[in-house]
Design a protein around this nucleic acid. Structure first.
Lengths: 147, 147
DNA sequence: ACATTAAGTTTACAACTGTAACTTATCTTT
DNA sequence: AAAGATAAGTTACAGTTGTAAACTTAATGT
């Protein structure tokens, strides 16, 4: 699995990747049928998306003769992290905490997910700063109140 | 502040919103200068973006005579939550936990952010499921191992 | 070996985005 | 009131994305 960081996957390509990641590997036919079921896409649409993914190096095509096999080149976990990091990188640092809080509130998390998060937080609490400043404008250190 | 949920803000519009949110309210000149400093954009670029934001109802223009005042219509916090929710909505539910973990690890969080997250987690732990299933494909309940 | 079918590749095209020039309307200053 | 300076609004234009038709090449059944 290679640098998910530098491959940009668009929204609909992302849907295709989810399918491929979950199937582990697949053929074009299987993928086309899946996407048709999942999203109602035509054969062509899935084919195009698959090709774009290959071209950008997110998926690889293997096999000697025709029904080729397609498998992910970038990992799911690392792609997810990259996407999440990218999102937070463009948000006000001061409000990241409350955004994460909101996400945690609304997502379904398993007991072990929660335990893991608690462990990370306990560790992080040790040398956490008193407050995180707004980094939206040069010079300005705080935003307005909660909104 | 109105339904951030239904206003779609693009990446560069988002940069403009950050500035407006942080300034609270602003004039076109001030915003143009800010974006020029921050992103190196020409006057026109900021004007266009500002107009698109007004058109889609994310910003409002007020004032009687010319240097008008611009202020946010959608809230920052709610927009951030909407963006984060949207991201996770398109990701494998089974892996949301580890993605959140990764985000927490890399973000700077204040002591009170952490305390808040801990409180939410403690509460959530009470009736958390043993495991969360993959929701990427109909029928398939688990993805491959961690990758 | 040929027709049929399935797999893979190209081309298309409108909507949306990032970026900005050009134009018009409105203040301000003389 | 006319000129000059600003602010606001319109138009532009190439690149990306979502969606899919059309075309080409390789496998398969007869």
């Amino acid at each position: 699995m290679i640098d998910a960081k530098h491959v940009t996957i668009t929204d609909s390509e992302w849907e295709v990747m989810r399918a491929i990641w979950t199937m582990g590997q697949t053929t074009s036919r299987e993928l086309i049928d899946t996407m048709n079921q999942l999203e109602g896409w035509s054969d062509s649409t899935t084919k195009t998306l698959l090709h774009r993914l290959i071209k950008k190096g997110a998926v690889e095509q293997t096999g000697a003769s025709r029904p080729f096999t397609f498998k992910p080149v970038v990992g799911e976990k690392e792609s997810m992290s990259a996407a999440a990091d990218d999102l937070f990188d463009h948000m006000c640092a001061m409000r990241a905490g409350s955004t994460i809080a909101q996400v945690i509130k609304t997502r379904e998390l398993s007991k072990s997910d929660i335990a893991e998060l608690q462990k990370i937080l306990a560790e992080k609490a040790k040398d956490a700063p008193e407050m995180v400043h707004c980094n939206c404008l040069p010079g300005k250190m705080t935003c307005e109140e909660d909104s």
